[in-house]
Amino acid sequence: MNQEAALIEIMRDADRTRLARMVREQPPVTREAWDKQVKVFEAAGRDTASSLPFWKRWWKTRG
């Protein structure tokens, strides 16, 4: 059981290190890229002005 606990700790530390590296290396989001993504959401029926999640709206209309 101690070997399993040690393995879990090693995997947890590796995941934390990997996540920290991903966050550090994340490129900044430009306004152009942001506006492009908003247009994609709106084209898919996502109401970006509303706080109501897309899936909640989707299931409500079909439920």
Rank of each mutant, 00 (worst) to 15 (best):
residue 1 M to W: 13
residue 1 M to P: 13
residue 1 M to F: 13
residue 3 Q to H: 04
residue 5 A to E: 15
residue 5 A to K: 04
residue 5 A to N: 06
residue 5 A to W: 07
residue 7 L to A: 06
residue 7 L to P: 01
residue 9 E to F: 01
residue 9 E to T: 03
residue 10 I to E: 15
residue 10 I to K: 06
residue 10 I to C: 02
residue 11 M to Y: 08
residue 11 M to R: 09
residue 12 R to Y: 13
residue 13 D to H: 02
residue 13 D to E: 13
residue 13 D to R: 05
residue 14 A to H: 08
residue 15 D to H: 06
residue 15 D to W: 07
residue 15 D to P: 00
residue 16 R to D: 12
residue 16 R to I: 07
residue 17 T to L: 03
residue 17 T to Y: 01
residue 18 R to S: 12
residue 18 R to Q: 11
residue 19 L to E: 12
residue 20 A to N: 12
residue 20 A to C: 01
residue 20 A to E: 15
residue 21 R to G: 03
residue 21 R to I: 06
residue 21 R to H: 11
residue 22 M to K: 09
residue 24 R to F: 13
residue 24 R to K: 14
residue 24 R to I: 14
residue 25 E to P: 08
residue 25 E to Q: 14
residue 26 Q to Y: 03
residue 26 Q to G: 00
residue 27 P to S: 01
residue 29 V to A: 04
residue 30 T to L: 04
residue 31 R to H: 09
residue 31 R to A: 10
residue 32 E to H: 13
residue 33 A to D: 13
residue 34 W to Q: 08
residue 37 Q to A: 07
residue 37 Q to M: 13
residue 38 V to I: 15
residue 38 V to Y: 10
residue 39 K to H: 08
residue 39 K to F: 04
residue 40 V to H: 00
residue 40 V to F: 08
residue 41 F to C: 02
residue 42 E to G: 00
residue 43 A to C: 10
residue 43 A to F: 14
residue 43 A to D: 15
residue 44 A to V: 01
residue 44 A to N: 11
residue 44 A to Q: 11
residue 45 G to Y: 09
residue 45 G to V: 06
residue 45 G to P: 12
residue 46 R to C: 11
residue 46 R to D: 14
residue 47 D to H: 00
residue 47 D to S: 01
residue 47 D to A: 00
residue 48 T to V: 15
residue 50 S to T: 10
residue 50 S to I: 11
residue 50 S to L: 07
residue 51 S to E: 14
residue 52 L to S: 00
residue 52 L to V: 11
residue 53 P to A: 03
residue 53 P to F: 09
residue 54 F to N: 07
residue 54 F to I: 13
residue 56 K to H: 01
residue 56 K to M: 03
residue 56 K to G: 01
residue 57 R to M: 14
residue 57 R to L: 14
residue 58 W to N: 01
residue 60 K to L: 10
residue 60 K to P: 02
residue 61 T to C: 06
residue 61 T to I: 05
residue 61 T to G: 07
residue 61 T to M: 08
residue 62 R to F: 13
